[in-house]
Design a protein around this nucleic acid. Structure first.
Lengths: 137, 137
DNA sequence: TATTGTTATACTCTATAACTATA
DNA sequence: TATAGTTATAGAGTATAACAATA
């Protein structure tokens, strides 16, 4: 009678934990930490992002973003410059090497793990449909 | 024509990332780090776990497990003692307070996030079925 | 005064390499 | 000799608090 939301959530967590090692390993292929990988994902080419917004999205403290950005900037992957409207704000942009690395990282990240490929086409379609609903709004 | 496995994986990753802040926040409620929370999850009451096995499951170096276990043991949540068969091996066991904390953590972890509860009963059942297949073997 | 980002500090996670005890 | 775990060390992620520049 009870809803299966709880069961679905537990299974999703279990799958998440079982795939847990995948993300750090993938990031390491590009000599990125998982967090750096995430930041690279979040800055879309041609869409500068204020540092503060990044802190909000990452649910972490602003001081943390400073260090994260320091390291990515030191590698020449991103650049920060003051906003023209409010000079307190610094916006982040990918450099050309940053754009290139982001592309290959995203491509590599898109490769589905084995268990996912074992699902039948119908199951894959159903999963896509449900996940889209999960991400709605 | 192409399979939808890739699309499903991308959506799943997106959902993970959108829920990303949830786990550390939940762990923090109990003054645990995410990694400590994970360890607590992995040691089932009455099923001692060798430290080496924990390192394998966590996909991390053994030296890391030492520190993780140090902190949990200092808090009286787990105990290590040498295996009777091979005295090089140390097995980990939950203490009674550890068992109690694990119970409430797991309970709290089982609460499905909002989007999950918005799914229709049929969608929830379909998701459970597919996730079970994903975790098979 | 309030806000954005930085710096100082401290703790945890993580890895590598060298070490100890046991097998 | 090989294996399980520890210690030493180093770098990265995270938070809090104090600070500078700007609004």
């Amino acid at each position: 009678m009870g809803s299966e939301a709880g069961e679905a959530w537990k299974l999703l967590l279990k799958f998440f934990f079982s795939q847990r090692a995948g993300i750090p390993a993938l990031a390491a292929e590009f000599e990125l930490s998982p967090a750096q990988c995430h930041v690279l994902r979040l800055i879309e080419p041609g869409h500068p992002v204020p540092m503060g917004q990044l802190a909000t999205t990452l649910s972490c403290d602003a001081s943390n973003v400073t260090g994260l950005v320091d390291r990515l900037e030191a590698r020449g992957l991103i650049r920060r410059h003051p906003s023209t409207e409010d000079r307190r704000i610094k916006v982040l942009e990918l450099t050309p090497p940053g754009v290139r690395l982001r592309t290959v990282v995203l491509e590599r990240l898109s490769e589905p793990p084995e268990p996912m490929k074992r699902l039948s086409p119908a199951e894959q379609r159903a999963l896509v449909r449900i996940l889209r609903r999960l991400l709605e709004e």
